[in-house]
Nucleic acid binder design. Structure first.
Lengths: 145, 145
DNA sequence: ATCATTTCCTTAACATGTTAATTGTTGCTA
DNA sequence: TAGCAACAATTAACATGTTAAGGAAATGAT
């Protein structure tokens, strides 16, 4: 018997898009007050958590492609949220660092963000929430890094 | 005690992005042979499954925003994948229908797509796969429609 | 019938996603 | 050391995501 593609009502890619939309909607709403985008928020989060780092690590940890990151960094530099400096030894490389202004956005909005996340945890239940993260990790080819 | 935002390593939004990337990567690779995008594939899937429909239903079912859909439909019309016609009664509305050329793409690639999906089902296990879809649906505010 | 409102769709403007081509550096090696 | 492969980052080109504004047609109230 031929194996049919699942109905769009039960499609994994579409389910992932919709879940992401459901999760990001309140976060985007929160971020609109700060004037930064969801991707810029991710960059700030990573830099805040790990400190100064090279672009490659930043791209990996914030799940952004290089061309996107190039533009985002340029925007964020203009806004004074990050600084950029070349590596003196290997001048192809550069390092990105969060500024006090950038850190301030993270610090001010983290409580609200945490509250939103807590809401989803409550919606799903603690156990389901952890299960979901585990299952999602299984779909990420780079999860075991 | 202050509730801290989770590490970016255990962030739900980032996990959703990465899982989506993991799932879409082989699908995009498959689609590159057809010259259509992932979103255009979704539109064709929906039209193929449900037949001719108005733009609003199409947007809902393919999880696309109206401005995106407007552009995508224009592109797909130029490619001869869909046709567009106004509603004679309510002339604000229009209906979109898949063409034989569009249908051919779906028919030719569905076996490959099904194979990719089956791979993920196998990776997760049938039970986990269903659990994942259920959990993702819980994060979709429009899931109970 | 008229006007404000609502609905459907399109445009506009900006940011990001995606792939491919390009530039500038470093390293290797013949 | 000249030349080439490999690497880091950028740029280009096109498509989509997202929010806001605009235009055309239908609806409802007066």
């Amino acid at each position: 018997m031929t194996k049919l593609i699942p109905s769009t009502r039960r499609s994994l890619p579409i389910a992932l898009i919709r879940a992401r939309e459901g999760v990001m909607s309140p976060i985007r709403e929160m971020l609109s007050e700060t004037g930064i985008t969801e991707q810029q928020w991710r960059v700030l989060r990573v830099l805040s958590e790990y400190g100064r780092m090279d672009t490659k690590s930043l791209a990996d940890r914030s799940s952004l492609l290089f061309p996107s990151l190039t533009r985002i960094i340029a925007t964020m530099r203009k806004k004074g949220l990050v600084t950029q400096m070349r590596d003196d030894i290997d001048r192809r490389r550069q390092f990105i660092e969060i500024t006090p202004d950038g850190k301030r956005i993270i610090d001010e909005r983290t409580p609200h963000a945490a509250q939103i996340v807590a809401g989803f945890k409550e919606t799903l239940g603690e156990q389901n929430y952890e299960t979901l993260l585990d299952l999602l990790a299984m779909l990420d080819p780079g999860a075991h890094r």
